[in-house]
């Protein structure tokens, strides 16, 4: 079937079987491999992406169901060569080690801060409680999100060095 959705601001269209999971559509069809997966049962949250601004588990959403919706992945976090404060925060506060859960964590953090710009620790922990990190023990993830809250986009601390490459948008296969 034909599937059309907006991914990181670009409209993409592709043929795919109805059973194709959104995570596979993003990774295998669009080549956006920043979205990872870690289980089959909606328990780990590695595959989190934003669907119409809301974090969802892309292993439990069919690409067909996402058709017509707006998807934002880790590749769409930085804008115009500027890192999202959440990305900067994860580097500043060592919010990642192996990096595998990181994209999902950062997207949930972005959605949280969009809703609540100054969350307390309990709110942050609750917001990421559907996502498992096996490396960090979460404390530094919490600190990273707090860092981002304290350095909102537009404040000078959130600016990144000039060498930060602009994120390309997805190539759409014919």
């Amino acid at each position: 079937m034909k599937i059309t959705m907006t991914v990181n601001g670009d409209s993409v269209t592709s043929e795919a079987e109805p059973r194709v999971l959104l995570v596979h559509f993003l990774r295998d069809v669009l080549g956006l491999t920043g979205t990872h997966w870690g289980c089959d049962t909606s328990n780990c949250g590695l595959c989190a992406v934003l669907m119409d601004g809301v974090p969802v588990k892309s292993c439990t959403v069919l690409a067909a169901m996402a058709s017509g919706h707006e998807i934002r992945t880790v590749e769409g976090l930085a804008t115009g060569g500027t890192l999202d404060p959440v990305q900067q925060g994860f580097m500043e506060e060592h919010g990642l080690q192996c990096g595998f859960c990181t994209p999902g964590m950062m997207l949930t953090a972005r959605a949280l801060l969009d809703k609540n710009p100054d969350p307390d620790e309990d709110t942050i922990r609750e917001a990421i409680s559907g996502q498992i990190c096996r490396c960090t023990g979460y404390a530094t993830i919490v600190r990273s999100i707090k860092w981002a809250a304290a350095h909102p986009a537009g404040s000078s601390q959130a600016e990144t060095p000039a060498e930060t490459p602009a994120e390309e948008t997805a190539e759409v296969p014919a």
């Binding site: 949250g45 989190a48 588990k57 439990t60």
Partner: peptide, 9 residues
């Protein structure tokens, strides 16, 4: 019930 991401859907 489940977790925040599941509750979103």
């Amino acid at each position: 019930i489940a977790d925040p991401l599941v509750r979103n859907r």
